[in-house]
Each structure stands twice: as structure tokens, then as C-alpha cells.
Amino acid sequence: MTDTTPPCPRRFGRFAAGLAIMPLLAGCSHAHLSFLAPQGPIAAAQRDHFWLVIAITLVVVLPVFVLTPVIVWRYRYGGRAAYRPRWSFSRRLEYVIWGIPFLIVGILAVFLWRQTYALDPYNPLPADNEPLHVQVVGYDWKWLFIYPDQHIATVDELVFPDDRPLALELTSDTVMQSFFIPSLGSQVYAMNGMVTRLHLAADGPGRFRGENSQYNGKGFHTQRFTARAVSDATFSDFVERVRRQGRALDRPTYQILDGRNTVPELARALDGTGDDALRFSAIPDGLFSAIVAGVPIQSLLPGPVVTSARQTPLHQPQGGTP
């Protein structure tokens, strides 16, 4: 881990299979998990909205919880309460049971409309500082974060200065995925051949759990990452360090990155150990748009041309035919 990373505390109930991947996933329980303990303005607004909707809805829900047992008891078989077997309509009650839900949905609709616009993930966030641009590419089963202005890229590690919002552009080089950092804010799908956008910000330094929430095959559950908000200085150090010590994203490396593998498998395939194993320096301009357009990436990258097929199927075809 980098210098700012606190040590991972011991965890119990850990099974052998998971041991190897832990350090690479930065899978440390210190990362914030939930928007109910929000770490950024978007998640905080979502939490408030969440509780507000619950509070308003309770107006209709609570009477059901309270009145149902009361009615069942009071009008039980053998009880002495009034019995009106033919009573089946009351205009006054109709007004109430249609009116109140309509009213509540009306109120909720106002909030819904406002919040949907206010929290639209495509909205740039108001901030004093310029946002940090990051381009996110979903692969099977990891995320590549390209920092176009810094010309670096990382796998499953998103580092950004805590006083600058994040402006993300997302795509997928494989099936549909959903990019999600719950404690910071919204999730948005990343789709092949398309670009979606997402804006997030953190309140301060911290570690936030990020994930893909859309099933995409057997490595899906390992597609977790940690997002870190750090101080400006630390961020500069980080960028410097990646530029200096990151590996070159050449053709053979990209070929492996593009394959179907989890992060530990990727690191093994790249013979990488240590923190800088999956950090890339000297990223060429236009890598992201080339991936979106589906044009051959090879021409952008240095190194020997690799010709073998890009996608390795998850299942080999059944049966005798090749």
C-alpha cells in the first residue's frame, strides 16, 4: 500500500481462498461502505432523501401496523363488538383512503422531481477547485482508471485529492457493468461503445469501498476496489510515483489486462508484486476514446503487435466441435 494507507486490522472468519487476493484488492474493512454514513455531499443528500421518504410514507404505513392487530382483536369471532355483515361502503372513508395516498404521492413527487434533477449524476458539482478528470473502463473483472491529465492509469485503485470533485467518464470494454462507490454517491452503468458520466466528491480524506454491482461472470464478486481521497500533496506524490515507477502499458500488457481475469490473476500474469504492480505510466492520449470507439488499441501502444483473439470465452463451447 501507499504511505497513507492504515494497516488492515485482523479479520476473523477468513477462508484460505481469499487470503491471497486481500492485499491486492486493498480489501480492508476500514473503507466506508454505506451511504447511511455518507462521506460526500451526494451520498449525504441521498441519505437525507432516504429518511425523508420513509418518514412521509410512514403516514400511510403506520396505521396499517397499528390498526390491523386492533381490528383483528376487536372484531374477532366470539367478540362482542358491533357486527355489520352487509356494511361495505362509506363515502367519507373512500375520500380518506384515496385522498391521503394521493396527497402523499403528490408531496413525494415534488421531492422526487427536485432530487432527481439535483442529484443527476451528469451534473458537475459546485466546487472552488477544478474537478479531477478520470476515465473509467470496466473489464472482466477489474476497473481501469485513466487519469488523462496526468497520463497515468491504475487498476482497481482510484486516488483523488479530497478538495477536488471527481468528474468520471465511464465505459466498458466487456459486458455491462455498474460503477458504484456507495459512501460517495450514485452508481451508473458502464456500457460497451457508450460513455456515461458520473460526478462525485468526498468531504475529506478517507477510504471508500467501490464495486461493480452488475453481475458479469465468475470473477464478479472480486471486482471491488478502494477509492481514496487524499491531500493535494499526497496526490501529487502519488502521481509522481506512478509516473516514475509505474509499468508501461505496452501491447502485451494491454492484451493481458483486456482478458478475463481477476486482479490477482492479472498481477500474476504480469509478474507483478508490490504496490506498483498495476499502475501504469505514460498513458497515451486518446486511449479512452479508442476503447469506446472499439478501434484497435494496438496502434496507440508501444511494444510488439499481438494478434491473438481478444475475448476469451468464459465457457469453452460444449461438445466436440472446436
Binding site: 451520498a43 443528500a45 421518504v53 410514507t57 404505513v61 432530487q115 455498474s178 450514485s186
Partner: peptide
């Protein structure tokens, strides 16, 4: 039927939550 009545109302409440796009952004796919 009574079990349904009570539990379904709760499910309805979470449904209203999910109907809010801004909340759905958080709990979708979870």
C-alpha cells in the same frame, strides 16, 4: 392474509424508496 397485509406494506414502502431515482442510484443492484 394477515402476514401479507403487514409485510406487504413494508415492501410497498421500500418500493416507494426505490421509485425515487436519486435513492435508486444507491440501492439499485444491491
Amino acid at each position: 392474509a394477515l402476514g401479507f397485509l403487514i409485510l406487504f406494506v413494508l415492501g410497498g414502502m421500500t418500493g416507494i424508496l426505490l421509485a425515487n431515482p436519486s435513492i435508486d442510484y444507491q440501492v439499485h443492484n444491491t
